[in-house]
Design a protein around this nucleic acid. Structure first.
Lengths: 189, 189
DNA sequence: GATGGCTCTTGATAAATGTCAATATTTTAC
DNA sequence: GTAAAATATTGACATTTATCAAGAGCCATC
């Protein structure tokens, strides 16, 4: 597992990777079965996660029990509940494996410590934030400006992998629509 | 104008503000009238903006000419089209003053240079990203999990200032609904 | 202070989407 | 391998939201 992370970091940072071995040593491997949770609503997000393989569903549950998905995080991507992680307030979100997944996790304390001690680690953290924010800008615009069918087409164009790996129910919850509506939209493509 | 920025940065970074004078010297003041543009679709985002006072509307225009608002940026907040700024690809968004506004802008080149030379500046940039990303997480969840009336109530609870400063038309476009629907929802509160 | 152009509201209607129920299909657990 | 559970589809209907049109209110400009 750690080799995947090492490759990932080298690809992000280039040649200047002083301290890389120490950085990597703080990451603990986790093996998740399908439907195992990394984080539940109400808990504090005490770790940052790197997905080695698998998919993590980031979702909330509303008052009547509906699950709605903010994001799916695939392998070689990073994951945290940023509000809970930074301010140590209870998480509003759940993180759950949508497939059997391998994850490397680093505690908030080690993460902060590495950020402070290794400029290159902070730089990588900044890049993670840039990418996460850039993606969320697209996603917000898709909700503000598109109807459900347009969002589905956008998803097919830009995130086709998700369709091969997730149930219809989950895709519907990512699009912000009911499973029935999703079934019907597929007929209109 | 620069004093506001200086106060803002000191508040963010605390005592260690070496280089602050030089940092601030790279920011150019801009005076915007209502409806002046900072950025248009198709242009490259060549600057990062700090709003001293006023409101900037961040919006897109779809194929049939509808304006939809991703965000409103108020005074003492930061603004960039992150995809265009980082990768120098054409912007998909417009930035336009919704009120007469005062803005400080720094070129991409100076911004990158300061990030590389002053760790504290990079730290502040990271904090801007953290805040922007955290806010966008809330906004995505509001679209995935709430209907229009719930989004309106959420906005009243969490961003009441916007109602005092923006037209109904703009608020509707921020909620992702038509002006007529917004009028009707107000009657249901 | 009139004029024209916005914005806001209201009504009528259409389109999109949700809910509920029934059935078919697939997956999971033993 | 089979039973049970979860998922996916389909139909009927309800609710939400958009669109179009008309009129009222507001405000910028001359």
């Amino acid at each position: 597992m750690h080799q995947v992370l090492e490759q990932h970091i080298r690809a992000k940072l280039g040649t200047d990777t002083a301290g890389l071995e120490e950085v990597i040593s703080y990451f603990q491997p986790l093996e998740l079965k399908r439907n195992d949770y990394l984080l539940r609503e109400g808990e504090l997000c005490r770790s940052c996660y790197f997905i080695v393989n698998g998919v993590i569903q980031v979702f909330t549950i509303d008052a009547v029990g509906n699950e709605t998905t903010r994001d799916f995080i695939l392998e070689e991507h990073w994951l945290m509940e940023i509000n809970s992680f930074l301010q140590q307030v209870p998480s509003k979100e759940f993180f759950r494996a949508a497939e059997p997944s391998q994850v490397l996790c680093i505690s908030r304390e080690h993460f902060m410590d590495l950020s402070a001690r290794f400029p290159q680690f902070e730089k990588m953290y900044r890049q993670i934030l840039e990418l996460s924010y850039a993606n969320s800008v697209y996603r917000i615009n898709s909700f503000v400006s598109m109807d459900a069918l347009e969002r589905l087409r956008w998803m097919m164009d830009h995130q086709p992998k998700l369709f091969t790996r997730l149930s219809s129910k989950m895709i519907a919850s990512y699009l912000g629509i009911s499973p029935e509506t999703y079934t019907r939209l597929k007929g209109k493509l």
